Amino acid sequence: MSSGLSLADHITLELRADIIGGRLLPGMALVENDLVSAYNASRNTIREALHRLGQEGLTLYVRNKGVMVRRLGSDDVRDLFKVRRTLELQAISASQPLRDYQSDRMLEALEATELAREREDWRAVGTHSLAFHQHIVGLLRSPLFDEFFTNVVAQLRLVFCTAPDESRFQAPWLARDRQIHDLLADGDKRAAGDAMSLYLDDSEHLLLQMLAPSSHH
């Protein structure tokens, strides 16, 4: 456990990582007793971690049911994309030519997405694709934005989970992520920004369509 992190911090981060990894899905119950034994932690510590996840918009307390992983709706999606446009487009427009290590990180995320797609592990495709966008925000070189965006990513992951057909939803984005990387690598910020803007518009539109009441059978 890294220094300076309390056990509650550690558990909060781990549960958030489970959400980003698609292991905790919307509507799942987070049972105090189970977490106490899983983490060998006190009830108070678990409560503190669950409280933090609630503050981060990842869990919800439901009367008579306890704490559940949150389901997000259309308003949440609009808000998340407002944040994405602000941070990701700003990161691109303010970016310097990509350093090797920045390019390498993006390529690693794209490579991992590609491999997950080949094994048709659509959940992992979503997770690795979001990692690519975390590296875009990383171009701002702001630990505060990185931390904030990790939470945005966890919320987005919960939206992706609601896709009735995750393969259809996840399939088209990899080529577009790759294009954005290549434009950045070529130093064409304007074209990269345009590509990202279009990407975010299309992604938001698709998610809102998916959440529209008519799409529920």
Rank of each mutant, 00 (worst) to 15 (best):
R63C: 00
L7K: 15
G73V: 04
E204V: 08
Q170P: 01
G193D: 06
Q209T: 15
Q90H: 06
A171S: 14
S142R: 08
A175S: 14
R23V: 03
E114H: 13
E88C: 11
R63P: 08
L211F: 13
L110D: 07
V67N: 09
R117Y: 05
D121F: 00
L211S: 14
T162D: 03
A191T: 14
L13K: 07
T162C: 00
L15M: 05
D194T: 11
L198E: 12
S167F: 02
H216Q: 13
Y39M: 00
E147I: 04
R16M: 13
R141G: 15
E14W: 04
S6W: 02
S2E: 11
R78D: 01
T150V: 03
E147S: 13
S93L: 13
E114K: 10
D165M: 07
Q170R: 09
G54S: 07
R105L: 10
V62P: 00
N151A: 14
S129A: 10
L35P: 03
L107G: 05
A163I: 10
L198G: 03
V83Y: 08
Q96R: 12
S197E: 13
A17F: 05
Y199G: 06
L200Q: 12
L80M: 05
L198A: 14
S167M: 07
L156W: 02
V69L: 04
Q179Y: 11
S3K: 08
F149Y: 15
P164V: 02
Q55H: 10
R176M: 09
L89V: 14
Y101A: 09
R157E: 01
H217Y: 12
H135C: 07
D165H: 14
Y199R: 11
A29F: 09
D188K: 15
A195T: 12
W122T: 09
A91F: 11
T113D: 03
D104P: 00
L206Y: 10
D186K: 12
D34V: 05
D100L: 11
H133K: 08
R16Q: 13
T59Y: 05
R99S: 12
M210K: 05
Q96I: 02
P97V: 02
M28E: 12
L5T: 03
Q155T: 07
L50K: 00
V31P: 00
E108W: 03
D18S: 10
V69F: 03
L7P: 05
S74E: 13
A109D: 11
L98K: 04
A17Y: 08
L30M: 04
S3T: 06
I92N: 10
P97Q: 03
Y199E: 06
G54V: 00
L130S: 14
